Computed example of a mutant assay.
Amino acid sequence: MSAANRSGADNQPGVLVTGASGFVGRYLLRRLQTEPVTVSTLQRPRHDLLQPASLTELCQGVDTVYHLAAYAHVNQAQIKTLYATNVDGTINLLSAAVAAGVRRLVYVSSILADPAFDQPRTAYGEAKQRAESLLQAAHQAGDIEVVIVRPVNVYGVGMKGNLMTLLRLLRKGVMPPLPRFTQPFSLIGVEDLCQALVLAAQCSVGDNAPIYALTDGEHYDIKSLEQAMRTALGRSQPAWATPKAVFYLGALTLEIAGRLLPINNSPGLRSYHALARNYAVDDTASQRDLGYNPRSTFYCTLPAIISAMDAGSAGADTSDTDNTQ
């Protein structure tokens, strides 16, 4: 392996993965090991999305770039860093890829890039949308092929985010029962997401860069997930639920705290709205155009997630793509 962590036979197509040390990135690397490709990864500090010169050699001999790296979990004081990494960093990688003659860039965006699923609007969602627009322009200009995927919340062994926080609080027995929210929302398993990413590197494209929302095809509601978690953990099901007004007040308090204090990824009103509104995502186009066939559900994966927690092997997540909503 070189300093770029390149592995595989020299006569195989070159593939570059950014964000390879993150939750999704680690799974994608394992998936690519089963493919006839030579894989390289962005290795910090030698390679940095904010240092264009460091990306030039990295893109040489690469056919496909999977761009997962992103800055997601921030507080108000870190918004400039978020835009720099997610927008400027993507521009720098795009420029290096075009200069090296890379055939295709698969951009792992987020469902939050769509304003309909990011209310109130967040800096993260807006930055992802800006990056998408820049990539679409490069595709339309014929500089490089681009496919954009927008996964919803990602689950799997090693996940972080709101679902894992809820699971850990329930496991400790300190989580009061959630309000009776029954609005549907979508999720996706990490292995299904990786399946879709590999297919996105191979699909046909037209004049415009396609954008594919990705889910596991199921609709969930948070109350059902909470009940499933309690059952899987061997906890009893409370006969009562926290009133929605009380839950809203708590979310409002956290919103204010997140704006005043340096709290990373602080929950707040957006978390409340995500539970109280319909956030079901239609991924018909991705299944039709990519031949994507999701095979997992959160309920089927939950025992493995809990088993990994019990074994202390859930794994650390570094910033690669949004898996919190």
Rank of each mutant, 00 (worst) to 15 (best):
126 E>W: 02
136 Q>H: 11
215 T>P: 03
160 K>M: 11
194 C>G: 02
12 Q>V: 03
181 F>Q: 06
292 Y>V: 11
33 Q>H: 04
174 V>H: 12
27 Y>H: 15
24 V>S: 09
292 Y>I: 10
43 Q>Y: 06
11 N>W: 11
192 D>W: 08
37 V>H: 00
142 G>C: 07
290 L>Q: 07
239 A>L: 14
137 A>W: 11
157 V>Q: 08
125 G>W: 00
186 S>A: 09
318 T>Y: 15
238 P>H: 11
243 P>V: 07
318 T>R: 12
101 G>C: 12
23 F>P: 08
186 S>W: 02
264 N>R: 10
236 S>N: 09
227 Q>E: 10
64 T>K: 13
299 Y>V: 08
216 D>C: 08
3 A>D: 09
124 Y>S: 00
276 A>F: 05
209 A>Q: 01
74 V>K: 11
74 V>R: 10
293 N>S: 15
191 E>S: 13
194 C>S: 03
242 T>C: 12
210 P>H: 05
154 V>H: 01
76 Q>T: 14
142 G>V: 02
242 T>P: 07
32 L>N: 01
93 L>M: 11
142 G>P: 01
114 D>V: 05
22 G>H: 11
183 Q>C: 09
309 M>W: 03
157 V>T: 14
268 G>R: 00
312 G>Y: 07
156 G>T: 06
312 G>S: 08
12 Q>W: 09
232 A>T: 15
114 D>W: 07
314 A>C: 10
44 R>E: 14
267 P>M: 09
168 R>W: 11
195 Q>P: 00
127 A>P: 04
128 K>A: 00
313 S>W: 05
127 A>E: 04
23 F>G: 04
13 P>V: 06
148 I>D: 00
36 P>Y: 12
20 A>R: 02
299 Y>M: 02
178 L>H: 06
272 Y>R: 00
109 S>R: 06
23 F>S: 10
34 T>V: 01
118 D>H: 00
46 R>H: 14
188 I>F: 04
97 A>I: 02
277 R>K: 09
113 A>P: 04
263 I>P: 01
200 A>M: 07
135 L>Q: 07
323 N>W: 03
180 R>Y: 12
322 D>A: 10
100 A>M: 05
178 L>K: 03
196 A>Y: 07
38 T>G: 08
110 S>D: 06
243 P>W: 09
279 Y>V: 00
11 N>S: 15
42 L>S: 09
228 A>W: 06
90 T>F: 05
56 T>A: 14
75 N>H: 14
37 V>G: 00
